[in-house]
Design a protein around this nucleic acid. Sequence first.
DNA 1: CCTCGCAACTCATGCGCATTAGTAACCGGA
DNA 2: TCCGGTTACTAATGCGCATGAGTTGCGAGG
Lengths: 382, 382
Amino acid sequence: MGRRIRQADIALKLGISQATVSVVLSGRAGRDIAISPELRDLVLFTARDMGYHADPVARSLAGGRNRLLGVFTFEPVFPVGQRDFFHPFLLGIEQEAEAQRYDLVLFTSATDGAGRRSIYGSGTNRLRLADGGLLLGLAPDREELARLVREQFPFVFIGRRDVHGAGLSYVAADYVGATASLVGELIALGHENICLVTGTADLEPTVDRKTGFVRAHDLAGRTVRPASVWEVEPAGIGPAELLSRRDQGVTAYAVEGAADGELVGAFLAAAAQADLAVPDDVSLVVLGDVDEDGVAQRCTRFAVQREEMGRRAVRLLIDKLEAEDPSEVSRVTVPCVAIPGDTVGVRRDPRPTATPPRARPAVRPPRPRPGPTDQPAKRPSS
Amino acid sequence: MGRRIRQADIALKLGISQATVSVVLSGRAGRDIAISPELRDLVLFTARDMGYHADPVARSLAGGRNRLLGVFTFEPVFPVGQRDFFHPFLLGIEQEAEAQRYDLVLFTSATDGAGRRSIYGSGTNRLRLADGGLLLGLAPDREELARLVREQFPFVFIGRRDVHGAGLSYVAADYVGATASLVGELIALGHENICLVTGTADLEPTVDRKTGFVRAHDLAGRTVRPASVWEVEPAGIGPAELLSRRDQGVTAYAVEGAADGELVGAFLAAAAQADLAVPDDVSLVVLGDVDEDGVAQRCTRFAVQREEMGRRAVRLLIDKLEAEDPSEVSRVTVPCVAIPGDTVGVRRDPRPTATPPRARPAVRPPRPRPGPTDQPAKRPSS
DNA sequence: CCTCGCAACTCATGCGCATTAGTAACCGGA
DNA sequence: TCCGGTTACTAATGCGCATGAGTTGCGAGG
């Protein structure tokens, strides 16, 4: 009594071999391997009768599948706290997993010292407990990703991430296309001198925005001057900088947006201080997502379809698991959706510096937030 | 190329046996089994050098440990919506797990048809992927729990749950003591006819409140009349019922409280309609927890220390894992904390029915909620 | 009557690790 | 010289399952 029941127990009871039990229980009976329907049913019945439940560990080790997808986040999400940036991804993942009748396994790890989470942290790759993995989070150790690929572990990264020399499968938002589209709109409205404001990190999302920025100009037969790209920390955006750019002819800005809208907040604050009205004096498009109650509510912008990305990632992973060659690289790009706002207008030449300030209300940061300098570290944009 | 590295690979490279590698890597070298320090260091170095990482699956199958605790919730937690009832438990669990340098694995399962989640749902007990399990949630299939016990899987349930014939380990809130204490307060204030209002379900938390109610009376040398226990659905609490009880001499109520305060809300609404002021006409204690912005803000009540319970559960489980006999039953009771309110007063005899309504403000439900009839299904009280 | 072919199963092996019962080598004491 | 006792390591086995290569029995075709 007390021990759990194995296939061997069933086999013994029926006087057949463990292999037969395995074949029947894994549903290969009749199709792949011939088993008489009577025996098949008998085994099935006996298994149920004896209360058999497969051991997922043994199944994994023997190369079988458990219909289990591992989810690993490089950012803290466990236990899934308040709705944060990653929450919609998880929602989408769960939806699709449930639809596909896969179960999920969410991993936590004690952050390894400096608050970073690592897959291999504790000496073992726990992801292997699942059939495949879904990874997300901002700045994972790329070496870990590369190693996962090398070890042929089937996984999909959510968010574009290129790892040198490793064919990484991912689901990414189309930042390039969305940026090109918004910037194209500005160009169509007559803006000739547009400034791209991005963070200073060299992550893919930022690179993508630059690429889209250039593409929009290419399409319009323009060229981008180096001065048009402003890589800056939020604290570096002040009224003086904006006025100086105004004097150099800048009539529109495309500002990188992330979950917290740091850059956007800083920009709006600076514009208000410089008494530059949006969109009358400068037009503004925000390249990316914004928190629901965030700073850039009224901005013309685009949103990342996070739930959809989660769903697509699950499908991609399952396809991979069911493919002959799970090491094949697969990538999906999910379009962003445009969100209309009221921060874009036709180009209007700058007023001379001397003109007295008008009272026409500009878009301002909703609440007087703490200065940009107080802001915490960067937030993800996927 | 590309294959992951096994102990055998290290052994081969060093010209030693896999067993030696295993012994060294599991830290038994020198202590349990003699290995020369030089070889030990060499193995350690080579393992790191070759990028060895243990396979948790193989380790489990061979009976080893992975420092992994499984968490399974019978209610939907993944992804957790807004901060819900179970969130604090998870927080506590995570804290303690991190402190003990254990990792967590959170399982989701596609709800099996009727929205119920089940451990054995998908034909395999996925919990086995971890070294042990923490289970929580309202109304699990008791048979599943019993089976887990039978199969000697080490786990701890959070919340008291007795399963017939199975020695279940759990961490529970002391509903009995907390109830006895609050009701004892009422008695001390002169109340002689106190009514216990509970839900109709026969779950342990409800039973515990009844027990505590009786105990308080015992301690005071009183006996509880059957009429003093009112098992009722929220919809069944109306002004007429309260007035009738008032006429029978009831001067105080002890109402079972759960996360959503359904019963409490219904009671307060009915009291307001019946023009019974709290605490002037009737005293009220709430037996249990209340949502932060819930209905019973000002009520005299007690709270369950959910985070603490989570922490204790982790410790209990780890103890169990490290014990010789993991099948030993272990139980912990965590006291509740009293929360003062303004709904309790000394006994005052009821006014005659004919007295005109006064304007003295009673405690009322903060917002005019939808009638109790519209409320969704019951919510957990652990 | 002797194959051939197919249906119905079984044998044997391995997944990567932990563990128990060894064995071989060496050393000191009598 | 022989022996008991260490020290340092290895052989072998099993965990529970999946899987590919058999093996057996039997009816049909030549």
